[in-house]
Design a protein around this nucleic acid. Structure first.
Lengths: 209, 209, 209, 209
DNA sequence: AATGAATGAGTTTTCATTCAT
DNA sequence: TATGAATGAAAACTCATTCAT
């Protein structure tokens, strides 16, 4: 994540010692728990601190205000998600387009749905958070990772790889969100996922695959 | 919209006289304005009432609580959106698949982006709103309208129209949301939209077009 | 009830025609119902009017404000109660002290307990109501009625009838309220009532009976 | 007071440190003052906090809502009252019935009338408060204390002490309330109190004294 | 005369943030 | 450094009363 966070959202200090890291982690976990159990509108600093087993005062040592906490939480989440997808992409350089797409969709889909409740509350926590920079940074990492991977496909040669890649990511990310936001039955989800892969492949083939 | 709303979100009274309708409309408009100008976390009943030029008391005669107001607002929005898309679908029965898809994507895309700020704030207003029923009802209307349209395509014959249709809608709706949430440059938006149409078409062709 | 009500609590007009009386009666009934079903803190003019089947506006024709309504309600209640007890007293002139006391306790006890829930909510409706005049007027009627009755007892001759009478009424009225406010088991209530009669009689005998 | 309070009326935290105790005490005092000066219907949390010299927020740390405050206030009052009466009873074990009754009536009467305005407003504060448990607990303590005392009377032997005791308490408590609620002239109050003692004694004598 | 929509001051309650200990 | 009591502005919501129709 190489994009500077909006200045006012910087955590007051970056945790360095072991104990701090543990505390920060506990606070993150507590935040998610409170969001899950009580909902955004009951997400209060006191409740988070209590659940994290620290005092509000201490929490304010690490996060100068509530927004900073939510910002950091989203940052952590997107960082981890990007890590996972990047990792998958790297491991699929040079394979066939079909396998690439399957791998990409699977990686993203599973990351989002294996804890779909957490995904959902994180979305809700981001409302009214100035997290464009975060999204942007995430998008850039994804762009790079998938572009790099697609470029190594032995069975394809795209005229405008950047556009094709941007389209692909928008479609995949958008569809996944749409599917789990609508709370579709699991069997339908699985089928749509297969169809999504098929759609991407027919698109890529037509585009130079 | 034939799915029952959660009981507690029902407006207190349905506006019948001209005056009431005007009031309710003013409140809706004011809500959107406040959301646009101040953001969700400054969306207070007082502010909405003030901007709508009515007293809080009056507002509470029509909406028993804030949630009910937001629910009704989203309902109105989705109803209108569904109206538009249904209308387009009806007017494209019997044309070629290519034209259908183009029309569908265009209709939805434009409805969402011609006031993308409004779309955005409406999404944010729906956070922590029990609006599954609304989404569900909207989805059902869309499903019916597009299925009916696709079934009349002279140049296609799908084995599993329902699944294909569900996929198509998830992809289109999801992609549109993703694109405008990421605040992409307009030129890229336009290109991706074209690519989206192309993708849908290659998918449909492969599926029986 | 010959004591003037505090000026600001006068009903705006005394109902004269048949229809008015019906309306006023309906409002009284509605008030009691709302008190019973919703409690004092949910006793609103709108709710009463609605339950009475009239509009708030109409209600305000008869009672210039909420207090006036409650005042009138309590007045009506105390008037009726006084009527009943007076009636019993009159019918027991000249009988033995034992029968008088039994009759008095029975009349009051039953009037209070036959609808103990109503009694209770009326007490609660009177809180913060300037109803001293009402109480006073009621007390005076009772005083007169029982003094007059006791004076005709063939088996007694009291040195200070007024004091004895005042004591008797305070004890009877107070005990009844205490018993039903404490929500005692019915069997205990019945026994205490018997004991109360016994106590009054032993007192009167000692005092000149 | 060994009867559990309704759960939702429990104070949020029990004051432990000196400062807390002072705050809670100040809030109690302020509540009484506001009740005295402004009346129940002007008893607002803000006014109480202001008068107590604390912020509303602080008040809400000790009492989760208005009802809890009123409940605690009544509890404190009844506890103290019970303490006083119990104390008097203990100190009169073994004396003559006449002295017992005199002591009991005096203790209760004085506790209630020495600050009759406070007594009155506390009654009014309890309207619509689910304080049955409180009353019950108080009644039980009184029952025990007076039964124990009466049992030690050298000049009496009661067949059914429990019933006699219950009657006695109902009569005494009820009469006291009736007398001071009617705002009788002081001289009459004094006389009635004497009569009440006389009445109780003649009753007890007849019952086995 | 009857209606009931509109008013807005007033109420309870919450919660981010500070700061004395 | 950690704590958590205290703060008070701000929020949602109510309801007695008025007055145009």
């Amino acid at each position: 994540m190489d994009v500077a966070a909006p200045r006012h959202l910087n955590p007051r200090k970056r945790p360095r010692q072991a104990r701090s890291t543990v505390t920060v982690e506990a606070v993150f976990e507590a935040t998610i728990q409170v969001l899950l159990i009580e909902g955004v509108h009951r997400l209060t600093t006191t409740r988070v601190a209590e659940r994290a087993g620290v005092s509000v005062g201490t929490m304010y040592q690490y996060f100068p205000h509530k927004q900073a906490l939510l910002y950091a939480l989203n940052e952590r989440y997107l960082d981890r998600l990007a890590d996972r997808v990047e990792d998958v992409c790297l491991r699929h350089h040079g394979v066939s387009t079909a396998i690439m797409v399957e791998a990409l969709v699977t990686a993203y889909w599973e990351a989002k749905t294996e804890r779909s409740d957490v995904t959902r509350v994180l979305y809700s926590s981001a409302v009214e958070l100035d997290n464009e920079a975060l999204i942007e940074a995430f998008a850039r990492r994804m762009d790079r990772a998938t572009t790099a991977m697609l470029a190594t496909a032995p069975d394809a040669d795209y005229a405008d790889l950047d556009l094709i890649n941007a389209t692909l990511l928008s479609v995949i990310f958008g569809t996944v969100r749409n599917v789990f936001e609508r709370n579709m039955p699991l069997t339908l989800q699985v089928e749509i996922r297969k169809q999504l892969v098929a759609m991407c492949l027919s698109y890529l083939k037509a585009a130079g695959g």
